Computed example of a mutant assay.
Amino acid sequence: MDRDQFVAELTRRARALPGVTTVALFGSSTDQGAGRRDQWSDVDFAVFTTDAAADQVGREWAFLPDPEQIVLAAREYDSAGVVLYFDGSLAEFGAGRPWPVSDASCQVVFGGADVQLVPPPEPEDPANAIRLCLAKLAIGAGRARRGERLAASSLIRQQAPSALAWAVRGRLASADAEPANSFDPLRRFEVAYPELAERLDHALAAPVEQAARDLLVFSRDVLEPGWTEFPSRAADLIAERFGWTPPDASATRG
């Protein structure tokens, strides 16, 4: 089922359910996002209901098209879910009482009177983001030395790069014509900063402590020159503590 068929059937089924008030799409699922849509795009949507219908609609998911074609369904949090269809297509959604919508891409396809649009979250402060990045690298490297490699990997390969990406976005001009994602700074990072993205990908492919070291080198190489708020003293201390001194800047250049 392609996106248009999915949305049409979703809308038809939702309209037929008592208490459903709104169906809204987000991201590449919207008409405006069609240019970014490809075979790997999921359908991202929300189904709002009256208070009386919220529990049943959120429990049964009767609005989902072609339920007999669903091969996997999982719940996230109290009112969200994700389903995988037999043809490999995916849908992510929330269903229940209306919540404030901070995603500017929101496209209402049915109802909409209860959609409350609010401003998206402010971008992270780059100075705090780079401090957070270095802290996550230090914690992660310590856990790697202790032998907790999986916990270290989460810090070094997920939390630190996210903070680093916020710092980069706050300091360097983007090549992406699309606005940055307000919730995940790594989305479309390859479009915004193609050369930096390649270097980051190379760094993150290394063994876990080497990845931490390479991210520290990357942050200093890309962000430290000319930035008085860069935590240079902390970076020196981390490098010395883990024996990464002097850093080899070529490690992250591929």
Rank of each mutant, 00 (worst) to 15 (best):
G111Y: 05
F93E: 00
E148Q: 15
V101K: 02
A141K: 03
F93Y: 14
A180D: 11
R146I: 11
V108K: 03
R145V: 12
D125M: 08
P98R: 01
A180H: 12
A138H: 13
R157L: 09
G170S: 10
S105E: 11
Q159N: 05
G96L: 01
G140N: 04
P126E: 11
Q158D: 07
D184E: 14
A163M: 15
A141C: 13
N128G: 10
Q158E: 11
S102A: 14
S153P: 05
I139V: 15
D114Q: 02
P100W: 03
V108C: 03
D184C: 07
G111F: 03
A104R: 06
A180N: 09
A167F: 10
Q159R: 09
G112H: 07
A151Q: 14
V109M: 06
C133S: 14
A141N: 10
V109C: 03
Q116I: 10
G140W: 09
A163E: 07
I156H: 01
E148L: 14
P98F: 01
V115A: 08
A127Y: 09
R149K: 15
F93A: 00
S153N: 04
P185Q: 15
V101E: 09
V118P: 00
A151L: 15
P100E: 03
V108I: 13
P126Q: 12
C106P: 00
A167D: 01
G94K: 06
G142C: 05
S153K: 09
F93C: 01
A177W: 04
Q107S: 03
A163D: 13
L164S: 05
K136S: 12
Q116M: 07
C133D: 04
W166M: 04
L134N: 05
L172F: 07
R145F: 12
A173T: 09
G96H: 01
G140H: 09
